[in-house]
Amino acid sequence: MAQTEQRAAPAAPAGHSVTAVAARMRELRASWPPADGVAVFNNVYLTVTEEVGRNIGRRRFPDRRGAATLDAVFAERYLAAVDAVAAGRRPPACWRPLFQYRHHPGVRPLQFALAGINAHIGHDLALAVTDACRLLDCEPAALEGDFHRVGDILERLEERIREELMPGPDLLEIVDPLTHLIGSWSLERAREAAWSAARILWGLRELPGLAEEFRDGMDASAGLVGRYLLTPLR
Rank of each mutant, 00 (worst) to 15 (best):
residue 217 G to F: 10
residue 193 A to Q: 15
residue 104 H to E: 09
residue 189 R to C: 08
residue 62 P to F: 02
residue 152 D to L: 10
residue 71 D to W: 12
residue 133 C to E: 07
residue 38 V to Q: 06
residue 153 I to H: 05
residue 179 T to W: 05
residue 90 R to C: 04
residue 105 P to G: 01
residue 135 L to H: 05
residue 172 L to E: 03
residue 45 Y to C: 07
residue 231 T to W: 10
residue 178 L to Q: 14
residue 22 A to V: 15
residue 130 T to R: 05
residue 75 A to T: 08
residue 72 A to T: 06
residue 234 R to L: 11
residue 11 A to W: 07
residue 116 G to T: 06
residue 214 F to L: 15
residue 224 L to R: 12
residue 208 P to V: 05
residue 35 A to S: 14
residue 44 V to S: 05
residue 102 R to M: 00
residue 19 T to L: 12
residue 9 A to R: 12
residue 212 E to A: 14
residue 142 A to C: 02
residue 131 D to A: 10
residue 86 A to E: 13
residue 164 E to L: 07
residue 221 S to N: 07
residue 99 F to I: 00
residue 124 D to M: 06
residue 1 M to D: 10
residue 121 I to L: 15
residue 205 R to L: 09
residue 99 F to N: 01
residue 123 H to Q: 14
residue 88 G to A: 03
residue 159 E to K: 08
residue 55 N to C: 12
residue 16 H to Y: 12
residue 28 L to Q: 08
residue 74 F to I: 00
residue 133 C to T: 08
residue 49 T to R: 04
residue 8 A to C: 05
residue 103 H to L: 09
residue 175 V to G: 05
residue 166 M to L: 10
residue 80 A to K: 08
residue 18 V to F: 13
residue 34 P to N: 00
residue 211 A to G: 14
residue 197 A to N: 15
residue 196 S to N: 13
residue 175 V to T: 13
residue 155 E to F: 05
residue 233 L to P: 05
residue 41 F to A: 01
residue 92 P to F: 03
residue 140 P to I: 01
residue 146 D to K: 01
residue 9 A to L: 09
residue 46 L to I: 03
residue 26 R to H: 14
residue 168 G to E: 00
residue 213 E to L: 15
residue 135 L to E: 06
residue 132 A to V: 09
residue 68 A to P: 04
residue 26 R to Y: 11
residue 151 G to T: 03
residue 183 G to E: 08
residue 56 I to H: 04
residue 169 P to S: 09
residue 162 R to P: 03
residue 202 W to H: 15
residue 57 G to L: 10
residue 41 F to V: 02
residue 148 H to L: 03
residue 73 V to T: 04
residue 18 V to G: 00
residue 175 V to S: 13
residue 165 L to Y: 12
residue 228 Y to C: 13
residue 109 P to R: 04
residue 9 A to V: 12
residue 73 V to W: 05
residue 173 E to H: 08
residue 182 I to D: 05
residue 40 V to L: 04
residue 19 T to D: 14
residue 178 L to T: 04
residue 10 P to R: 08
residue 228 Y to F: 14
residue 78 Y to K: 00
residue 51 E to Q: 13
residue 19 T to G: 10
residue 26 R to I: 11
residue 115 A to T: 07
residue 146 D to G: 12
residue 196 S to M: 11
residue 144 E to R: 13
residue 159 E to F: 00
residue 113 A to N: 01
residue 17 S to I: 04
residue 197 A to K: 13
residue 178 L to G: 03
residue 52 V to E: 04
residue 227 R to P: 02
residue 51 E to S: 13
residue 52 V to I: 15
residue 63 D to F: 03
residue 110 L to Y: 00
residue 225 V to I: 13
residue 142 A to L: 09
residue 75 A to D: 10
residue 223 G to T: 11
residue 118 N to Y: 02
residue 210 L to V: 15
residue 47 T to I: 06
residue 126 A to R: 05
residue 171 L to Y: 06
residue 153 I to V: 15
residue 166 M to A: 11
residue 164 E to V: 13
residue 53 G to E: 12
residue 74 F to N: 03
residue 96 R to V: 11
residue 214 F to C: 14
residue 162 R to Q: 12
